[in-house]
Design a protein around this nucleic acid. Structure first.
Lengths: 232, 232
DNA sequence: GCACCGACTGAACGCGTGTTTAGTCTGTTG
DNA sequence: CAACAGACTAAACACGCGTTCAGTCGGTGC
């Protein structure tokens, strides 16, 4: 007979899954089944009974978090521009632990990481296109590549920053994100606003180089009359 | 009696350490002591005999890789600009596995990761300062923050990219890095050359906001007379 | 010769892991 | 009531791990 636990709160299986998401976010995916079980207030055997194996539990957590990502994106659509999406999500204390799970996945790879990043890239593509149409952002030679780079860069910088000095309180993702932005927002926006180089020369040289590759097949547009440019 | 192994090549301890660096780079730091021992052609007990514990072996690998970083930086100084440092290092097949080790550390955190990143930041500071002095790069409001951001951004993007789709052959870092650059070089240099936004407005607004914070203590320079700017 | 020492090994120990087993309890269904 | 089903657990199992133990080898100093 279990002691001081609500006899039927909303499905023991879900409670175990939620506890697992939280524990994985806190301690990484090496956390033991027994630790998850203890968090959920059940025995380790019951975890296996409900999910079959630890791997299957991991997959169930992935699916749950992934479903949440899709749902919350649909809900928050239009409420924030691309750059502030994470911030808006993190503000909600309810969803913060789920973002912790996503950050863990980002460090470990796997399907959630890929799917999450792909969603972010798709969003970025939309936001960037709108920004270009509104005259806020400069156009790019390859919009898809830029959206991908911007996303990988933002998430990679955040992930590496968190890995290098882990936050004191991984639970409160909102505070963690604020700390990160307080450090990186200035150089980031400076880069966005004015770039880094004083001239377009390097870019133009590389574009020329692309249109006249030194080896392999020919490109798909320019007739390529210029060489790799050596005059000033 | 050991069978077909050179009786004295250069110290068994060093051979074990080198094997460990390689194995950790390939399989991560969860690789077992027995696996390292098998790679080195010795027994697991001998590994412990020489290093005391697996943790100590890990630390020895860290120190070795760290020492290599310092030495090779000293050697390669001036041979490459900041952005191409990694590329130059990766070209040398001899050092490629060590870079694999560094990338693993970047994903796992710890002292090597911090020290490596700090070295890269220090280098970036120098290179950026020279670039600004030569008129190649635009000056920044906070040069240190920019050097830090540029480094974290570059390494974070690379690390995340490698985590999301791990290379087929983690051994030769050179090919891996070429693949990465082939995908990301264009949007990267585009960002460096022209930035992203069409106007400095967001940056200037943020600078004004910094000089007149809405709460807490006052800043250290401007007398802060402007509000948070709402006119065009 | 003989004692000593460090390199080195195979076998074992202790522990934590994921998983299985056997069984108890509770609610439902005939 | 009897029979079944599923939630749930304590105990055990099998395994891989880092580490320890007891002992063998080969070289060196006396």
């Amino acid at each position: 007979m279990p002691a001081a636990r609500p006899p039927s709160d909303g499905g023991t299986r879900d409670r175990i899954r939620d506890a697992a998401v939280l524990r994985f976010a806190r301690s990484g995916f090496d956390a033991s089944v027994r630790a998850v079980a203890a968090d959920a207030g059940v025995s380790a055997a019951l975890v296996i009974h409900h999910f079959g194996s630890k791997d299957a539990l991991h997959r169930a957590c992935d699916e749950h978090v992934l479903a949440w990502i899709v749902a919350s994106k649909r809900h928050n659509m239009g409420r924030a521009t691309g750059g502030q999406l994470l911030q808006v999500l993190a503000e909600s204390d309810e969803y913060a632990p789920l973002l912790g799970y996503v950050m863990r996945s980002l460090q470990s790879g796997g399907d959630v990481a890929r799917a999450f990043v792909q969603h972010m890239i798709d969003d970025a593509r939309v936001y960037v296109r709108e920004a270009v149409a509104d005259g806020i952002a400069k156009p790019s030679v390859d919009e898809d590549a830029r959206a991908r780079y911007l996303t990988l860069s933002a998430l990679g910088t955040l992930s590496l920053s968190l890995t290098l000095d882990p936050p004191d309180d991984p639970e409160n993702f909102s505070a963690t994100l604020r700390t990160f932005l307080a450090e990186q927002y200035l150089p980031m926006i400076e880069m966005f606003a004015q770039g880094f180089l004083t001239s377009r020369r390097m870019l133009d040289d590389y574009l020329l180089y692309l249109s006249d590759p030194p080896t392999g097949g020919e490109p798909d547009d320019a007739p390529a009359t210029a060489t790799t440019s050596e005059e000033p």
